[in-house]
Amino acid sequence: MQKLIKTVTLSVALSLVGGCSYLGVYKRDLTQGNLVTQDMVAELQPGMSREQVKYVMGSPLLEAPFDADQWDYLFRLDEAYGGVDQRRVTLTFANDRLVNITTEGDLSGDIDLTAPDGPGPTPEGVGPEDNLMTPQPSPEEIEEGAP
């Protein structure tokens, strides 16, 4: 009976300690929305058409459902081991022309979106298998190089 109690106690203790991790959980930065910078907003001028605004800013993340004359560009960066950076640009149109620009958050700060070195998922287009394909010469290049 005493051996059973020791076994059960040891099992419970190992189960509780096994749930703890000293290495921590891998976290990654989470980006959402349209990246908005001060340079992009500086290019906007009142009187620009919607197409010109799309060329500078890209497609809006949100178009107001009841007011098609308002576009919202939102960006949120939740750093894995840091804070949260939020930016918002609201553009208002009248007669398909830009009339008002409203900004929230610090647009002047640079945001580093490069993947950190070390363990974790590899971004697409960076792995060793991406270098296996070599470009094939065109038929014109083959004919020029032929003796």
Rank of each mutant, 00 (worst) to 15 (best):
residue 139 P to Q: 05
residue 10 L to M: 12
residue 41 V to G: 00
residue 36 V to M: 06
residue 32 Q to N: 10
residue 53 V to Q: 00
residue 106 D to E: 13
residue 2 Q to M: 04
residue 42 A to R: 12
residue 75 F to T: 01
residue 71 W to Q: 01
residue 107 L to Y: 08
residue 100 N to Q: 15
residue 28 R to F: 03
residue 110 D to A: 13
residue 126 V to H: 15
residue 56 V to D: 10
residue 5 I to P: 00
residue 113 L to A: 12
residue 56 V to R: 03
residue 89 V to Y: 00
residue 13 A to D: 03
residue 36 V to G: 02
residue 93 F to D: 10
residue 107 L to K: 01
residue 135 P to E: 09
residue 99 V to I: 15
residue 37 T to S: 13
residue 78 D to T: 09
residue 42 A to S: 13
residue 81 Y to K: 13
residue 49 S to T: 15
residue 113 L to H: 09
residue 93 F to C: 11
residue 111 I to Y: 03
residue 2 Q to W: 08
residue 135 P to D: 03
residue 144 E to A: 15
residue 145 G to K: 13
residue 34 N to M: 07
residue 145 G to D: 14
residue 120 G to V: 09
residue 24 G to T: 13
residue 61 L to I: 02
residue 88 R to A: 10
residue 66 F to I: 06
residue 21 S to E: 03
residue 116 P to K: 14
residue 29 D to E: 12
residue 114 T to E: 10
residue 92 T to M: 05
residue 101 I to Q: 04
residue 75 F to M: 04
residue 102 T to L: 07
residue 72 D to V: 04
residue 126 V to S: 13
residue 9 T to R: 02
residue 78 D to V: 07
residue 128 P to S: 14
residue 8 V to A: 12
residue 115 A to G: 02
residue 132 L to R: 13
residue 19 G to C: 10
residue 62 L to A: 01
residue 125 G to T: 06
residue 28 R to G: 09
residue 111 I to P: 01
residue 91 L to D: 03
residue 110 D to T: 14
residue 2 Q to S: 08
residue 114 T to I: 01
residue 75 F to D: 02
residue 51 E to K: 12
residue 79 E to V: 08
residue 31 T to E: 12
residue 23 L to V: 08
residue 147 P to Q: 15
residue 24 G to V: 12
residue 98 L to I: 05
residue 24 G to S: 07
residue 119 P to D: 12
residue 110 D to L: 12
residue 128 P to I: 14
residue 131 N to K: 14
residue 1 M to H: 05
residue 17 V to D: 00
residue 63 E to K: 11
residue 14 L to E: 05
residue 96 D to Y: 10
residue 125 G to C: 07
residue 33 G to D: 08
residue 51 E to T: 10
residue 52 Q to H: 07
residue 103 T to W: 00
residue 97 R to N: 14
residue 62 L to Q: 00
residue 88 R to W: 08
residue 118 G to K: 04
residue 112 D to H: 05
residue 94 A to D: 10
residue 122 T to M: 11
residue 83 G to K: 11
residue 140 E to W: 01
residue 75 F to V: 00
residue 36 V to A: 06
residue 138 S to Y: 11
residue 114 T to P: 00
residue 105 G to P: 04
residue 41 V to Y: 01
residue 127 G to M: 05
residue 146 A to M: 13
residue 22 Y to Q: 02
residue 94 A to K: 15
residue 31 T to I: 05
residue 9 T to S: 13
residue 13 A to S: 12
residue 63 E to R: 04
residue 52 Q to E: 15
residue 38 Q to E: 11
residue 116 P to I: 11
residue 98 L to T: 02
residue 101 I to W: 03
residue 86 Q to P: 00
residue 63 E to L: 06
residue 141 E to T: 05
residue 5 I to W: 07
residue 60 P to H: 04
residue 116 P to R: 14
residue 108 S to R: 11
residue 4 L to Y: 08
residue 112 D to L: 06
residue 136 Q to N: 08
residue 22 Y to I: 09
residue 120 G to C: 07
residue 25 V to W: 11
residue 96 D to G: 10
residue 146 A to Q: 09
residue 18 G to E: 10
residue 20 C to K: 08
residue 108 S to M: 05
residue 98 L to C: 08
residue 81 Y to F: 11
residue 108 S to F: 07
residue 105 G to T: 03
residue 44 L to N: 10
residue 71 W to N: 01
residue 113 L to F: 11
residue 113 L to Q: 13
